[in-house]
Design a protein around this nucleic acid. Structure first.
Lengths: 227, 227
DNA sequence: CGGGCCACGCTACCATACCAGATTGCGCAG
DNA sequence: CTGCGCAATCTGGTATGGTAGCGTGGCCCG
């Protein structure tokens, strides 16, 4: 699930169509349930149906499109199960990473996290949500570094992103930057003391913040869900 | 990553080609590095190149094929990183499932696991490897049930399968049924006592059995790996 | 005899045309 | 007015032909 964008070698028309549609869908500019036709998209890009078709196939494999032969192709709805699975994996993996971090982290890692917190505070004061969001990912990446599990950050980011994108639908502000920063501070602090119990509690609390948000979206946008 | 085989609606030629190639690749009848051409496969199935192309795209999305525009398509090699990630996810998820099982399991679940162990013993005595293999999956599924995490079994099975398939390359017998059965017994026993510490130790030991096997394959079949 | 260049053949990519199933809406009959 | 049925039209699936990039082998030149 890696070579989605920017395939190693050459860049094809199909890649362009794929990237465009992928962006539209994950950003929710194309909403679940929207009908979408090969011919239509082919017209927009001034290419034949074939590359479009290829892009559709790839998107279908990512569960972003649902193509029904002889009927139509629609933007796929959310799946509560899929969301639950993504959150479970993220939680389980990050917990294990942190358990390891308690044993493998060095003062350099602690220092790195401390700097991250400062930067987060700066973005917070500047009300720069975009920046804070990026720093959020950085922080969790550095947690992986501390746990000597750099290669697991991809997994964490993937599942985090899948959940984050749904939360933009939330009516209420998901969680304030202040709350998230506070969570992060607790995590860094517990890790600094190498206190595994506290650390696991802190990360689970952090990841549980979205419980209510997601439940709310599930209700307020029931028509976007397939189950 | 679900609708691979048996897509909901209609069955197309592309589906046939996909299923066939998928089977050949995961069973290692088609070895990593093997060159494979649209025209060639199209000839075998007596269909045009287009459906074959579709199947290729889908297999490429599963990282089973590597299609290089204007060059050639080859069966993709293994990735040590991917294997590590799969094993980490499996370990992290199953540990979390078992931690929950310590709190949520009922005597019925314990009973179910006890029966599983008996069946495993039967298959063991009959030297029925095939059967034992299936029972292995059942056992882990019932662990998920005990942890009230039925929906996570798919994730565990997926990652377990990805690793198992590579292990058939092992020169030495991966692990005897006796060893695995013993592991399972320890897990069920620790769970029966709701002893979280012992339980986690048991499952980690169980999952670590493949460490040496995989390291061996990495060396003996270095040409099958891309990194 | 050896090295570089070129052309041929291979690949996957793309466009066009046609096919079959499914839907929809119009018209006709009751 | 209503309900049934057929046909036009839309969908994605398939076939085929042509194109462009890349590898390779042969040929020519040094």
């Amino acid at each position: 699930m890696a070579q989605s964008l920017a395939r190693a070698d050459r860049r094809t028309n199909a890649d362009d169509v794929f990237d465009y549609l992928h962006g539209e869908i994950v950003s929710l500019r194309l909403l679940p349930g929207t009908r979408i036709s090969e011919i239509e998209v082919a017209g927009q890009f001034d290419v034949s149906r074939q590359p479009v078709r290829e892009a559709f196939i790839r998107l279908a494999n990512l569960d972003l499109l649902l193509v029904r032969p002889q009927k139509a192709t629609v933007v796929r709805q959310f799946s509560s199960e899929k969301i639950k699975r993504a959150r479970f994996i993220r939680m389980a993996v990050e917990c294990e990473v942190l358990r390891r971090a308690c044993r493998s982290a060095s003062p350099l890692h602690d220092e790195r996290l401390r700097k991250d917190l400062e930067e987060q505070q700066a973005a917070m004061k500047a009300r720069d949500v975009e920046r804070f969001h990026a720093l959020d990912y950085d922080f969790h990446e550095h947690l992986c570094d501390a746990g000597d599990c750099a290669l697991m950050f991809g997994t964490i980011a993937e599942n985090k992103a899948a959940v984050d994108r749904i939360c933009v639908l939330s009516l209420s502000e998901p969680a304030t930057m202040e709350e998230l920063h506070e969570d992060h501070a607790l995590i860094a602090e517990a890790l600094g003391r190498r206190d595994e119990g506290e650390l696991i509690g802190a990360i689970k609390a952090h990841l549980s913040r979205l419980d209510d948000v997601i439940a709310g979206i599930r209700k307020s946008h029931a028509d976007f869900f397939e189950d």
